[in-house]
Amino acid sequence: MIITKPGIYEMDAAEYHADPCPDGSLSSTGARALVTDCPAMFRYKQFNSPRSRAFDIGTAGHLMVLEPHLFDERVVVVRGKTADGKASPGYQTADAKKQRDTAYEMGKVPLLEVEAEKVRLMREALWSDPVAKLAFKDGRAEQSMFWQDDESGVWCRTRPDFVPASGNYLVDYKTAASANPDDFARAMLNCGYHQQAAWYLDGYHAVTGKMPDAFWFIVQMKEPPFLVSVCKIDQASIEVGRTLNRYARGVFAWCNGRDEWPGYQPRVDEPARVCSVSLPPYAFKQYADGMEVGAFEPPVTVKEHA
């Protein structure tokens, strides 16, 4: 499928991530990368994204929660055996590694048996949460949306985890070490989730004409007891993300139009130059506090040592 018109399209995740826009398009993940790193690194990761166990478990978790009818079709449970036919945990045997590699070649997700069971338990815990279970009712999961930004001319894409039939809110499911809302607030800054929320909301508005009232992150622990929190992003944070997304689209338009992807320099549209760097503000505060109490005075002077 080749995308030349804005709209909502039915396609699998692999086709979406392959980017069906002829001139290239920008996703929320790409926009966040262009804000936090240089274009050269963004470009490299476009074509060199290594798989990881965490990625596989996250993908399987999304399937189990959002598209459980596809779980058995897209996930391969690896049950490795030794040369004499005995069960072997993990990927210690050649048999287990072969099952894993075959799954990758088939475009499927390999999971160890213990990991598959964990994903099932996570789903049970999520659907037992009185608030979270309501977020995934009466709607559509994993729809691909494409639109062209009016200001920059950049083609953009997004794939919300879940959109209710009302379109009043959008949902994204995250697995994390902690589901504590305070921990997620810190992760929101570090991972750019405020950008993601703004990107999804604006994308949905661009293709449907309707702006949802809210964006919810359903956050779940990856380890027992698989606790869940529902985090609604406040409007002020979304506005910060929206500004950063506008900047990212401008950088992408500049780089993509010239096929130039600069490394670390202050701005992509300026000549490369030496970058001035400084200690972070907290380091100067620590230094000032230490100087005030003499913390950096050496215990032995040169004269005393002599």
Rank of each mutant, 00 (worst) to 15 (best):
H205G: 01
Q196Y: 06
V240F: 09
E239V: 01
G209V: 00
P160C: 00
T243I: 13
V219M: 12
P224K: 01
N256P: 04
G257T: 00
A185V: 06
D234L: 09
H205T: 11
R246L: 10
F215I: 03
G263A: 15
D161T: 02
F162H: 14
V207Y: 08
N256E: 10
D259R: 03
D234C: 08
V163H: 04
P225T: 02
N190R: 13
Y193N: 06
D234Q: 14
Q235I: 03
F217H: 10
E260I: 06
A253T: 01
D182Y: 04
P160G: 05
T243G: 13
M211A: 09
F184M: 09
I233L: 13
F184G: 04
V230F: 02
V240W: 10
P262W: 04
L227N: 15
E239H: 09
D183T: 08
Y173N: 15
Y204K: 08
E223G: 02
A236P: 05
M221R: 14
S229M: 10
N180S: 10
A185I: 01
V228P: 11
R186T: 05
L170K: 04
Q195P: 02
R186L: 09
A177E: 13
D161I: 01
G250W: 05
A165K: 15
A206Q: 11
A236H: 12
S237F: 00
V219A: 14
N168E: 15
K232V: 02
H205N: 08
G167R: 14
N190I: 08
P181D: 08
G203I: 08
F226M: 05
